[in-house]
Design a protein around this nucleic acid. Sequence first.
DNA 1: GCAAGGATATCG
DNA 2: GATATCCTTGCA
Length: 218
Amino acid sequence: MDRSGLVGGPVEAARALLGRSIVRDDAAGRRVGRIVEVEAYGGPDDRASHARFGRTSRNAVMFGPPGFAYVYLVYGMYDCLNVVTGPEGTPAAVLIRAIEPLQGIDAMRIDRVRLAAARRHAPRTSPPRVERLVDARIASGPGLVGAALGLDRSWTGIDLCDPRSPLRLEDPAGTVAGGRVIATPRIGIDYAGDPWSGVPWRLAIGGHPSVSGPRSTR
DNA sequence: GCAAGGATATCG
DNA sequence: GATATCCTTGCA
């Protein structure tokens, strides 16, 4: 996709990313998903942003130009994909929280099984639930997006706007399915305090089956 | 409702 | 160097 759509404010950039395709090429083939849920993080004042303590080795890419990937590990096991936004020097990013699988669904499942195997001490009283998930729920959550696309922190710095990148953003091939955009507070950032924990910077396509969370929040 | 899991930021 | 914390998930 064109980088110019990402230079505005974080919420504006988040809205520009909704409905875009994300493409992952590797030896196994091509995986394609459509972005249906995002969260905006931006501005040095945003107490929920990884940049709230200033520049560190982890978040340095957020201070760079827009359109690059920032992948971080959370809870010790989930790699989450962000798109750096805003002009260079402004630390902002959009977290990709859910995608609708379009192509390469089998490959997405394989990497999800890998994720399940990584939970070494998890009780295995039943077959991994991932194998029973319906397609629409394979990547319905930020940790699941990373797993479905086979990402880890080493992907930080990839140019998502370069058509030659093995991981990139593209304009959707077909028509963008209808559906209103809903806006809610961001997930899991209560520590950020007022007003940051309440600003409606989580955007999603309302009612879409691939959006994360309980039905009441979709 | 809660455990699993490791990197990170902040402290001592 | 130690440790509290974390933008989550799947199963109890």
